[in-house]
Amino acid sequence: MFDWRWDFAFEILPRLLQATLNTLAAAGVGYGIAVVLGLVFALAQRTPSRIVTMVVRECVEFIRSTPLVLQIFFVFFVGPQFGIRLSPWVAGMIAIGLHYSAYLSEVYRGGLDSVPKGQWEACTALNLSTTKTYFRVIIPQALPPSLAGMGNYLVGIFKDTPMLSVIGVAELMQAANAIGGSTYRYLEPYTMVGIIFLAISLPAAGMIKLFEAWVRKKLGMN
């Protein structure tokens, strides 16, 4: 039966909003890890060393082919058996950051591959070092075509933070579960969680588009 109770909804709202901050923090930190580590993975796959390329390539494939929730469990529950004891937050950030870095490395790879060969040749002709070739010429051009994919995964990581509830990270889903568990009312908390996610994801997607246009303009590429 549909019996939505507004008073209950308002009562739990502060608690959910508090948890939303945790969710945003988890998504932000996890994404930060993924953005940097993803670039490391993408660049590592372009080194002249065949072994490095192969090992990284296999790691990326492995991470992409196994479920995030398994990776979260693995870091949190299996880690201690090897003497690595991590708090739910740290374990969660490592797992989700690592997971998304594998996806982002593929986005970067596509972006890097889209830079025309002539740009590399111009760098050689100007005698730029490899590092400067990447950071001053190639990556700035690989960025705009990567932004759409990067944006998708930003929204993706945000929507995947509820998985962290399985190891007890106090994010939105965990808060809703706790409310449901103690009051036996699930309609309001879960509905509100859905609305909160929607209210953040939708504008975020729009803002990413605007940001992409801004970056293109800034780099004189349109």
Binding site: G118, E121, A125, L128, L219
Partner: peptide
Amino acid sequence: IGMCFQHFNLFPHMTAIQNCMEGPVQV
């Protein structure tokens, strides 16, 4: 050695003068 290419290969994210300054400054 310096080289000019058929398709110019200027750096699209830099202005004309930034293209010219890149090598002298960075290299």
